[in-house]
Simulated scan of single mutants.
Amino acid sequence: MSKKLTYSIGELAREFDVTTRTIRFYEDQGLVTPQRRGQTRVYTPADRVTLKLILRGKRLGFSLAESKELIRMYQPQGDNRSQLLALQGKIHQRRAQLEQQLRDIQVMQRELDDAEQRCLDALHDLETQ
């Protein structure tokens, strides 16, 4: 099976389940740079990979700026050590944020449980009067 040399905006939108508007937004941000054939945008395999990385970063909770930073660090002929270390650092940061959010949610759940129990106790007291 041969690899495609170019992609239309519609093909990429369908493949990644995003709107064409989303892809145009990433183009406006300078993340993908399609060629033009008249009014038609023509995306390369590199644009496709970039789009895939942006969407993966989004799923992991990275901001667009963070994804952009990581993508720009990529060096096709290099060992990409600095990119990998930066990614690892961002993963650790994101994990720490999620762990803090989980602790905050657990505290909130306990507070809700306590408030609900106070309501139940007060209702019970009203019924027994």
Rank of each mutant, 00 (worst) to 15 (best):
R59H: 05
R94P: 01
S67V: 05
D79P: 07
R81Y: 07
A65R: 14
I91D: 00
D104L: 03
F62K: 14
E111S: 13
I71P: 07
G89V: 05
Q83A: 04
Q88R: 15
A115E: 10
K90Q: 11
M73N: 00
K90V: 01
G57R: 08
R56Y: 14
G89A: 15
I54K: 11
D114A: 12
N80T: 05
Q88K: 13
F62P: 12
S82Y: 02
L60G: 13
H92A: 14
D114V: 05
G89Y: 12
L84V: 12
Q101Y: 04
L102T: 04
G61D: 04
R110A: 15
E66N: 04
V107K: 09
H92L: 14
S63L: 08
S63F: 08
H92D: 13
A65E: 15
L102G: 01
Y74R: 10
L102R: 08
S82R: 07
A115C: 07
L85D: 14
E99N: 11
I54Y: 15
L112N: 04
Q106N: 03
K58N: 04
G78Y: 05
R103G: 10
M73C: 00
L64D: 09
E116M: 14
Q117Y: 03
L85Q: 13
Q117N: 07
A96V: 00
M73D: 00
Y74I: 13
G61A: 10
G61N: 09
R103C: 09
S82T: 09
L70M: 10
Q101R: 11
L60V: 12
L98N: 08
R81P: 00
Q83C: 11
R118A: 15
E69M: 13
A96K: 00
L112P: 01
G89K: 11
R59I: 01
Q101I: 01
D79E: 15
Q83T: 02
Q97G: 06
Q101A: 12
V107H: 07
A96W: 00
V107T: 11
D79S: 12
M108L: 10
D113A: 11
L84F: 13
D104G: 00
R81M: 04
S67A: 09
Q77G: 09
G78T: 05
K68S: 15
A86K: 15
L55Y: 06
L87R: 06
A86H: 14
Q75C: 03
S67Y: 03
I91T: 05
L85Y: 02
R95H: 07
L70K: 02
L85I: 08
D104T: 00
R95A: 02
L112M: 08
R110T: 11
L84Y: 13
Q75K: 13
E69S: 06
D79N: 13
R72V: 02
E69L: 13
R81V: 06
L102F: 03
D79M: 01
L64A: 04
E111M: 12
I105W: 05
Q75G: 03
R72Y: 02
A115H: 04
